Computed example of a mutant assay.
Amino acid sequence: MPKMVLLAEYVAINGNDLSTYAKKAELAVKVEEKETTTYGSLGWKESLGGLKSGDLGLEFLQDVAAAALDSIMWPLLGTVVSFEVRASNAPVGTSNPKYTGSVLISGWNPIQGSVGDEASVGISYPTSGAVTRATA
């Protein structure tokens, strides 16, 4: 069974490669469960898939220098922008698919942490529209 260790994830928001700031990226997609159980189901629950949705969870090391992370993300607040994530920054292929779509930049935490902590930003964005998987 193949195994993988994440060493160089690729994370881009609005066309900006933010991989050098990223410590963690999680893309979760799901489908609403719509119960369709009837008396004809003979006591077994039946379900159909409804609307699809997703969340892009990110953790960054903060950088407030000019042209760095904070100055890239701050102007995006409240907008819907593109994203791309891959398990590796290697070229896209059958063993390194890319996941793309759009997210609503629904928040930003420019200052987060306690005394002695690294300056980091943990945030999650809802997807907007379809999330696609491609190998080319």
Rank of each mutant, 00 (worst) to 15 (best):
V92I: 09
L76Y: 00
E32W: 03
T135R: 15
F83C: 03
T127M: 02
T94L: 14
S19C: 10
T100I: 10
T36Q: 09
L69F: 01
A66Y: 07
E26F: 06
S114L: 15
W44P: 00
N14D: 04
A119L: 07
L69Q: 02
A66S: 13
Y10R: 05
K98L: 11
K3A: 11
L61E: 14
A65S: 12
V11T: 04
N109L: 15
R86W: 01
G50K: 11
S102C: 06
Q112P: 09
A8W: 08
L58A: 03
V29H: 00
G101T: 07
P91E: 11
T38Y: 12
P97K: 04
V31G: 07
Y21Q: 02
L48H: 11
V92W: 01
G43W: 08
I72L: 14
G43S: 09
V31T: 13
I123A: 06
G129Y: 00
G93D: 15
S95C: 09
T132S: 13
K30I: 12
K34C: 10
S47L: 06
F83I: 02
V31E: 10
G129I: 04
V29I: 15
E26K: 14
A25F: 13
I105Q: 03
L58Y: 01
G15Q: 02
P75I: 00
A22L: 01
L48E: 15
V64L: 10
G54Y: 01
S102Y: 10
S82T: 07
A66Q: 12
K52H: 11
V80Y: 00
L7R: 13
A87R: 11
T20R: 06
A25Y: 12
P91Y: 07
L27D: 03
M1Y: 04
L104C: 06
V81I: 09
S120M: 08
V85M: 04
N89K: 01
A119F: 02
T132N: 07
E35I: 10
K98E: 13
W74P: 00
K45R: 15
P126F: 10
L58G: 01
Y39R: 14
P110E: 08
S95M: 12
N16H: 14
P75D: 04
G93N: 15
S88P: 04
A28L: 05
D117Y: 09
D70Q: 13
I13N: 01
L7C: 12
N16M: 10
L18K: 05
L6P: 02
A67F: 11
L56P: 01
Y10S: 03
T94A: 15
L51M: 10
F83P: 03
V85K: 02
K45G: 14
L51T: 05
T132H: 06
G54Q: 00
A67N: 13
I72F: 12
K3P: 02
D63C: 02
G116W: 03
Q62S: 11
P2D: 12
L61T: 15
R133E: 04
V80A: 08
N89P: 02
I123W: 02
G122L: 10
A90V: 03
L7P: 00
G122W: 09
L6Y: 15
P126H: 09
N89I: 00
T20Y: 07
A87M: 10
V131R: 12
V81D: 01
S41I: 07
L61K: 13
V5Y: 13
A134P: 08
A28D: 03
G50P: 15
S71T: 13
S71K: 12
Y21E: 00
L42M: 12
D70G: 07
L48G: 11
N109V: 14
G40E: 12
